[in-house]
Every structure is written in C-alpha cells, then in structure tokens.
Design a protein around this nucleic acid. Structure first.
Lengths: 202, 202
DNA sequence: TAGATTGTTAATCGATTAACAATC
DNA sequence: TAGATTGTTAATCGATTAACAATC
C-alpha cells in the first residue's frame, strides 16, 4: 500500500465507472466483471485491489459500496475537488458545461478569460472572471486544480502563474505542451498527438 | 522494423514536434536533444530510431530532414489525412478551429451536426453538414478518420455508424466510452478520467 | 588523432498473466 | 459438500537504461 503503480492508478477510474453504473441491487462485483469493464485481465484487477489493500470475499467478490468508497479515497475525491477552467473560448466552454464533472466529484468554481466583454457572462452557473484574478483566487484557495483551455501562445505563461500560486495540478488542453517543475502533476491532452498516434494504427 | 511497440509509437509525435521546431540552419540532432524534448532517456531514443530502421551518423547525429520524413512516413502522414468532426457544439467547434491540425497534416474536411438550424454555417472554411450525410460521405472516401464531439448519449450510435461505413480510426472526445470491434483503432479522451488520475498525484 | 555520438548488448526494472491453493 | 472466486506466487512479457565498442 506504499505507492500505487502508474498503471494501477490509470485503471482506478475505470473500475470506479463500473461501480457507479451497477444496479442498486447488486452488492458485489467479481474481478472478472471489473476486468471486462476496464478491458484488462481479471488477475490484473485482483492485483490492483490487493495493492490498494482492499479485500474481497472468496467465492463472493468485492463489495460495490466499499470498493467505490475505497477507490474514491485513494484518488483523493472523497470530498469534492474545486476546479478552475482557464479560458472561456469554445473549448473552455465545452469543458465547463460538461455535467459529468460534477457527478464525479469535481466542481467548476471559476472560469477565467482575458476578453473584457465576456466578464460576468455565465456558463452554467459560474460567471466568467477576469484572467488577472486567477492568481489570487488560487492563492486564496478558491480552487485546487486547473484546466488550461487557452491559446497555444499563452499556455506556458498561464501555467507558470498558476504554479507560482500553488495550484495542486494542471490538466492542459491547450494546443501547446507546457513545461513544469518536477513535482507538479500535469497531464497534457493534445489533439494532434492523438491523431498522429491513431494514424499509425489506422 | 516488423512492428513498433506502443511506447515507441507514442513517442514519435514528440520527436516530430522537436524536428519541426529546430532552426532551418540545424541539419542534425543528437539523441540527447531528442531525449530532452521528449522527456525520455537518450538510449531510449536511439533504440526507438533503430527500431524504425533509421540510421544516424556516429559522432554527428541524425539528419533532421530525413528523420522528419521517416517518422511522418511511419505514422502514415506522408500525405495528408482527411478528418471529419462529428458534432458542432462548443467542443467540435474548438477542435475544428485548431489550426495546428492542418500544420501537422490533418485536413478537417467535414463537420457534422444534428441541429437543422446550423447546417450550412461555416466553421473556418468548412460548412456544417447534416449528420445523416456522415455515413455515405465516409463510404465515399471523403474522410479517413473521425473525431467524436457529440453528447454522451449519442456517442456509441455514431461510432457504430462510422465503423459500419468503414472509418479507419476514431478519436473519441465525447464524455462516454465507446465500444468498438477488435481491430478498429480508437483513442478515448475523457475529462473526468484525466482529472481523477491527476487528483491522485496532486 | 581527439572528441563526439551512434548502435547494440546485457542488465534491470515494471507490469501482466497463468495457475492454483485458500476459503467463502 | 460443491461451486465460485479471491489472493498470491512464479513465470513471462515488455520497456527502459547503463555501458561501451564502433566509428564518424
């Protein structure tokens, strides 16, 4: 239970998704069910849950409710996480409107943009705030995590500012890779890269 | 040179990005330069390029122009790839407007939407087409690859139709995982999953 | 020749999986 | 007891990396 492997962490959301979708009446799941849902081997699932320190019952399976709670705890989403979206263009707006976020424990508490004409405009029930406020809002603890949805040209600068303000992690959807100091968790989602990889296989 | 490993394929776009960004005057790159840019070990780079069947020159490095061409060939983007975007909401619009696609060899040749009021509206220089045309357009060879940017509820159905029409690969940005037959290359990008993974580390 | 850098080997590391005793 | 399924071991597989001879 020291530290989970990257591969294991990447599978936990998939298990969670199955656990969130089973019928109310189903109290337990088998490693086989979890495996099918996650697209992995059942032994792999059992190993993952064992690494989590989570025990099932032989001949029966794993408690849906308990496992759900355990995974959420491990991922750090027992409580709710406060997320800011930086950039209110088409991409930022799309991300802010995605209701699945709230269902999964993430609250969009702020959306920032540089365009003065759009300040105050509502996306869902969050009003667009001016970009300059992001730094102090982050320092003040308004949000934990940031989603970058800004143009390529400003991604690095925005990331630097957020890191300076102590943001706990960054999800970068901007079409530019950002460099961050060691220890700052970042994930970069880039459309071109995804298409290039896909292009190889198709 | 039989078949590249998944890990190697995932790194090729990163190498390519460096190669596209070096000054005109720089004719060669070292494995060390590529390694820094891609965030991997130099030995790893040399192994990757060796797997590609690409040779450098000892004491000198790798030819920028030749390597660039070789990687593009390997990824299947020597020529241009024709991409359709399915769904013209905020997400689809953001993806369609991303100019980096064209720079990297992907042409957005069609954007489809179900909303009758939006048919004909232009995004960049592509007019929105009615969703029903996607199947025949794909069959007719208008596009190779599809990017899904539809609501969660329709993702699976749309994917099924595209696969039926012989689409070569799918990049799914819809907030729902789609199931596809073996052999159809798919990549799924899900905001919640990314945040959950990030949440563990931050 | 001296310095730089590749190409490849061998070692290591990390992750997956088959198999099966344990046990509900 | 019989059937199901976990938990864990050992084997295997896949990927990374240090090291260094080859060679520009």
């Amino acid at each position: 239970m020291t530290e989970l492997s990257k591969a294991t962490v990447a599978r936990l959301p998939r298990y969670l998704r199955l656990l969130d979708s089973v019928r109310e009446s189903q109290a337990t799941v088998s490693s086989e069910e979890l495996a099918v849902a996650a697209g992995v081997n059942a032994a792999n699932v059992r190993r993952d849950l064992s690494d989590l320190g989570f025990q099932g019952t032989r001949g029966v399976g794993y408690s849906v409710a308990d496992l759900r709670q355990r995974i959420r705890k491990e991922l750090g989403i027992e409580g709710r996480r406060k997320v800011a979206i930086i950039g209110a263009g088409n991409l930022g707006t799309a991300l802010a409107r995605y209701s699945g976020l709230s269902q999964r424990g993430f609250d969009v508490v702020a959306v920032y943009d540089v365009d003065p004409d759009r300040i105050g405009e509502k996306i869902g029930d969050v009003a667009i705030t001016k970009m300059e406020s992001a730094h102090s809002d982050c320092l003040g603890g308004l949000f934990d995590m940031a989603i970058l949805a800004v143009p390529a040209g400003s991604a690095q600068q925005v990331a630097d500012e957020l890191i300076d303000a102590g943001v706990s992690s960054i999800l970068n959807f901007a079409p530019a890779r950002v460099r961050v100091p060691d220890g700052v968790p970042v994930r970069q989602v880039d459309l071109s890269t995804e298409l290039q990889i896909l292009s190889y296989y198709g």
